[in-house]
Amino acid sequence: MEVVDPQQLGMFTEGELMSVGMDTFIHRIDSTEVIYQPRRKRAKLIGKYLMGDLLGEGSYGKVKEVLDSETLCRRAVKILKKKKLRRIPNGEANVKKEIQLLRRLRHKNVIQLVDVLYNEEKQKMYMVMEYCVCGMQEMLDSVPEKRFPVCQAHGYFCQLIDGLEYLHSQGIVHKDIKPGNLLLTTGGTLKISDLGVAEALHPFAADDTCRTSQGSPAFQPPEIANGLDTFSGFKVDIWSAGVTLYNITTGLYPFEGDNIYKLFENIGKGSYAIPGDCGPPLSDLLKGMLEYEPAKRFSIRQIRQHSWFRKKHPPAEAPVPIPPSPDTKDRWRSMTVVPYLEDLHGADEDEDLFDIEDDIIYTQDFTVPGQVPEEEASHNGQRRGLPKAVCMNGTEAAQLSTKSRAEGRAPNPARKACSASSKIRRLSACKQQ
């Protein structure tokens, strides 16, 4: 084909351009004929944790799935940006308080904090938690009735009371019990989460009196709706648990309003109706937990002794299953770290194939690490110290990083047969305790 000078094309009309061969290198194709290559998922490591896909996002930050490269346990990490926390009232204080509380709590029905990582340079905090497959609110939203069968609701409620009793025994008032803060594992274990607005009572406090509340409006008791200066913290949790039980068994809320002012007005009056299909035992329990006067409201001991709580409820309806993943529609909620794991395991070791967030990740503290002497050669063979940054567990980050890069360049065919977990650990520049 004859090559045409581009400067001469402006002298031709459209018809003349076609005659000189423009149609031979300008093609129009339908979008259905285009085959897009999927974007390669680059592996990203935060300390010893391999990052997966997004699980959810809230006002405080994002939650992603991660894999512990040492234990191969599935975890969830809450990623918090200090810049964003400053824009939220009491944001930083709530996060630090939640970390302090979770560090000393150990119960099967309370979410466990596994690790805390802090990135000084990017001003990011990573709260590594045990993995929960789904939230209770997500399960309720997945069915038209917006409720659980009585047998399933009873099982979840009993676990909620177990976890709540443990928190109260530790002198902690949750203040925000609701389905949105109750998570579930694949085995059906309920976990109380989000202790950001919780309050730890003084060890020598005479009672459970509280003065502040930041919980969700629909789950607040009349004493808070009416603006009382002080109130019983434990009875606030009992009320919120009662509203939660009402919601998961009926699909409704005892109090509603077009806006928060109308909602608080209705809560302050204390008038509500219980659907007739709840039955006398459940209705009596709800009335005891939603008692207007805090002094007359049920205690956890009274809830445990109630006939509806103690009764064994046979399954009359099919239980609400864990819904498919909202993004991938995966009904099994498979591990989202698998594509990243395959990338590390299947590809040659190259620095361009993975990302390490930083050479140094500070753990379990908000301060910069200490310094240790770096050896410097002298005339008599002895070495003197220069400062060298280290990880919180004493690992020399720069030395590990250099060693990792040197190993990656060394030709050794046997290394390709290593397991995925050992490869992740070798790529991680800074081991965590």
Rank of each mutant, 00 (worst) to 15 (best):
A76W: 00
F148C: 02
F366M: 12
R106S: 12
E199K: 08
I360D: 02
S283F: 03
Q112W: 03
D194V: 00
A76C: 10
Y156I: 06
Q220H: 04
M127T: 10
L263G: 05
C391A: 13
K312D: 12
Y49I: 09
T32A: 15
T209A: 08
K78H: 00
Y49L: 04
A347R: 13
Q159W: 05
L101M: 15
P413H: 15
P373W: 14
K175S: 05
Q37H: 05
K97G: 03
E357T: 14
S19G: 15
L54T: 12
M392P: 15
V4L: 05
L290V: 03
F255S: 07
Q100P: 06
I260N: 15
E291R: 13
E357P: 14
S401W: 04
P315A: 06
G276W: 10
S142Q: 15
I361H: 08
A43P: 11
Q8L: 12
G91A: 06
N181P: 00
L113G: 01
V368R: 04
E199V: 12
P149G: 05
W239Y: 05
D162L: 06
K83N: 10
S193G: 03
Q159E: 09
P275K: 12
F234E: 14
V63L: 02
E165W: 02
R333F: 04
Q382F: 07
P38V: 06
V243S: 03
T230C: 08
M335W: 02
L140F: 00
G381R: 12
R426Y: 13
Y253W: 03
V243F: 03
F255V: 07
E14Y: 10
G242H: 00
V320F: 06
T249E: 00
Q302F: 07
I177R: 00
M139R: 05
A316F: 08
T185L: 07
P222M: 03
F298D: 12
Q220G: 04
A417G: 12
G61H: 11
D176R: 00
K146E: 07
P222A: 04
D365W: 10
Q159N: 04
T13K: 01
D208C: 09
G381L: 09
V173Q: 12
E138I: 12
L195F: 12
Q7R: 11
P254V: 04
I79C: 01
A316I: 10
A397V: 04
L140V: 05
D258H: 15
Y261L: 03
G188L: 03
Q382C: 07
L344T: 14
V66Q: 07
S307R: 05
K388G: 10
L290E: 00
A273L: 05
S325L: 14
N393T: 12
K178I: 02
I172S: 02
S216M: 01
K175T: 06
S422R: 12
P38Q: 14
N247F: 04
W332A: 14
E291S: 11
M18I: 03
L45N: 05
I192T: 00
I424Q: 13
P324D: 14
P324L: 11
T71I: 07
F148A: 01
V243L: 03
S334T: 08
C278P: 08
N380M: 13
N380K: 11
I29G: 08
V116R: 05
R383S: 10
S193W: 00
M51W: 01
E33W: 04
R104S: 04
E130P: 02
S271G: 05
A153E: 01
G91N: 11
L341S: 05
I360W: 04
D365H: 10
D365N: 03
K416N: 05
K48R: 11
S240A: 05
R28I: 11
